[in-house]
Write a protein that binds this DNA or RNA. Sequence first.
DNA 1: GTCTATAGCGGGATAGAC
DNA 2: GTCTATCCCGCTATAGAC
Lengths: 226, 226
Amino acid sequence: MFNTRNTTDVQRRILTAATDLFIRNGFRATSVRDIAAASDASVAMVNYYFRSKYTLFEMIFEDALDALFERVFKSLHSELPFFELLEAWINSYYEILMEYPQLPIFILNEINQDPKQLMSRMMKREPYSVYRLLEKRINDEAQKQLIRETPVHDFILNMLSLCVFPFMFRNLATSLTGASNDDYNDMLNEHKKYVVTFIINALTPPPKRGVNEAAFSSFSCEEVLT
Amino acid sequence: MFNTRNTTDVQRRILTAATDLFIRNGFRATSVRDIAAASDASVAMVNYYFRSKYTLFEMIFEDALDALFERVFKSLHSELPFFELLEAWINSYYEILMEYPQLPIFILNEINQDPKQLMSRMMKREPYSVYRLLEKRINDEAQKQLIRETPVHDFILNMLSLCVFPFMFRNLATSLTGASNDDYNDMLNEHKKYVVTFIINALTPPPKRGVNEAAFSSFSCEEVLT
DNA sequence: GTCTATAGCGGGATAGAC
DNA sequence: GTCTATCCCGCTATAGAC
């Protein structure tokens, strides 16, 4: 996650400890004293290497956004068939969020508390370019009647909801059911499969007379029109 | 939201100001000084009427949970046909969350920071009774082949995701697009309709030879089998 | 009831010795 | 580079005057 050349051991320890604490507990709930204790350094050392608590936070937030955007964008730029693209997209969310489970709630929180400061960091990643890419794919598929007519931003919001929310829900669910984190991970891996079929079922158009059978071949309606 | 008999005017002002601040900014990010300033009272007054910051918070958190659970549970106990029940369920989320948009992120945050303390407050509402109710409805519908085979808790998690996440996403979306809160509310009201059809499309089974046509009458596949 | 004043703590940051 | 000591601030809570 970080460039580790030319950094002392202490600096690296502070960075990894701070990453863990900031992402788990957020900016306000993490103290420099916590970071110092967790990295086996002193408060003075944290400020020596990273001018202030906030500049340290900025580096970490930036890298967290990088990790998230890079992986998701890569999956969206593939040339796969549409339903496989969707599956790759979902997989990329699940992969990155399995690695940093607190990332969504962390990002939403920090944006709630400091919208202007952090928004420019989002925009640098040019989210609109990937939006237009998706828009084109979706409209093409709909025009070929391979999927239903689909409002693009509503659909994207649904994808985000279905992929991201289960990770935000983790602490509530494990507390309610008494499940362990590993239990919840197992559950999530099963849930992912249902999310994929759920989305494909929602998009797949109802079969009509005279339409090309191939459009409905793999996911539903196999016995219709035969 | 609150019982206002036998409370002085100051007490009421403190309570409403604190509700607003706690739900918008969370427990830690809200200071007693903020509450005093916003309610035109003094710090000492806040502690005079509500023994401590935390007991004040507890009252407010409790009432927020009440507002959320009561309305959602009521919609789930209706005898409506299944797809209409789903729509009523979705509507109840949107109604309560239009009223308290920050509630989800507030609840998830506080549970992240103090799981044990606050979990008993969730359990008092007996979420399992409503889970079993839904389980029965879903399995009945599936057995009558009115919907696909549906894993209950995966489906409930999808419902939660699709209803709750858009509200958590508000600040990020409005900051990114420059939209106002009213714009976003308009968008949400449109989005709600798509969520309803999305879910119904995902559940509706593919038509099969020899099956009762009525099952597929209203939402898709109208021209099939005719 | 309501206020002012303050106790007491934990936070971020830094000075200065080594 | 690293540490200890300390400054100064904002916080919660309460004491005590009115």
